[in-house]
Amino acid sequence: MRGAGAWTRLPRLWSLVIGITFLVVLAAAGIAVGISLRSDEQRDAAPASILPDHDCVALIGPEPWITLHANSEPQYCVVVAEFQSVQVWNKGMEPMTVDWPDGERQVAVDDHFDTGPIGEVLQVGPNEIAAAPFVMPTIWLLAESLSPTSGIEATDDGFGPVRVGMTLDEASAELGLRLETVEPVPGPNRWIAAVHGDPYSPTFLSEGSGDGTSVIVEILLHGPHR
């Protein structure tokens, strides 16, 4: 399989036209999914075998993001992969300061900083990062060896046993892992799906109602899978 920058395209049934929205980005590096953090939201828990006693959401893609815009403490954490370069955005009404491990970052309103490959800065496991006036979530760095998709190889026409044209339910059954839709993308009934709780997951672009009957039309590989 040939790589293309930070991601690899696999054969698809038809082209998807992906625009830029606040929560979904298709750039030269590929599709990424981030999270906008608010203290009044709850997220599904990641698998207990990986993150016991934490309500977390996995960030997907090579350049996902965290958007801070509430000054009360979030009730959950985010799970990141070692290869990901995370964008930390300030969408509040005043400048923020982040005590990042490699140096303090001053972030103006409606601006961000890039972490670079986050595995080169954070330690495996939970990382507590001080910030003001907003509160950063716990950032849980998941070791590649603990990824549910670790050891699954990409093929010329799919990812492990998964092929374009399968439904998300069919792909889940083949992988033995739960694929779930993460975000809608521009266009009618189009979605990003990923393996639940796994920041190393490929991005499965699908079309349909957003449930398990949605059909995979393209697979984008990231990090160690490409």
Rank of each mutant, 00 (worst) to 15 (best):
M1R: 04
G5W: 01
W7T: 08
W7F: 13
R9M: 12
P11T: 10
R12W: 09
L13I: 14
V17A: 15
V17E: 14
I18M: 13
G19F: 14
I20A: 15
F22Y: 14
L23G: 11
L23Q: 12
L26C: 10
L26G: 08
A27M: 11
A28H: 13
A28Y: 13
A28K: 14
A29G: 15
A29R: 12
G30H: 02
I31F: 04
A32N: 11
V33I: 15
E41F: 14
R43F: 15
A46L: 15
A48N: 13
S49W: 12
I50F: 05
L59G: 02
G61S: 05
P62D: 04
E63C: 05
P64K: 00
W65C: 06
T67P: 01
L68T: 02
L68P: 02
A70E: 09
S72N: 08
S72Q: 10
S72K: 09
P74W: 00
F83K: 00
V86W: 00
Q87M: 13
G92D: 05
P95M: 06
M96Y: 01
M96K: 06
W100L: 07
R105E: 07
Q106H: 11
Q106K: 12
V107L: 07
V107F: 05
V109Q: 09
D110S: 13
D110G: 09
D110W: 08
D111P: 07
H112L: 14
T115Y: 06
G116E: 07
I118H: 03
I118V: 14
I118A: 06
V121I: 12
E128R: 14
E128K: 14
E128H: 13
A132I: 08
P133F: 02
F134G: 02
F134C: 07
V135S: 04
M136P: 00
P137Y: 01
P137N: 03
I139S: 00
I139H: 00
I139F: 00
W140E: 05
W140Q: 09
L141R: 01
L141Q: 01
A143I: 00
A143E: 00
E144A: 04
S147H: 01
E153A: 13
T155W: 04
D157Y: 03
G158W: 00
F159R: 03
F159G: 01
P161C: 03
V162A: 03
G165E: 02
M166T: 08
T167S: 11
D169T: 15
A173E: 14
E174N: 13
R178V: 15
R178H: 13
R178W: 11
E183S: 11
V185P: 04
N189S: 14
W191L: 10
I192G: 03
V195I: 12
G197Y: 01
D198F: 01
P202D: 05
F204Q: 07
S209H: 10
G210D: 06
D211E: 05
G212R: 03
S214E: 01
I216L: 05
I216Q: 02
I219V: 10
L221A: 08
L221C: 06
G223T: 06
G223V: 06
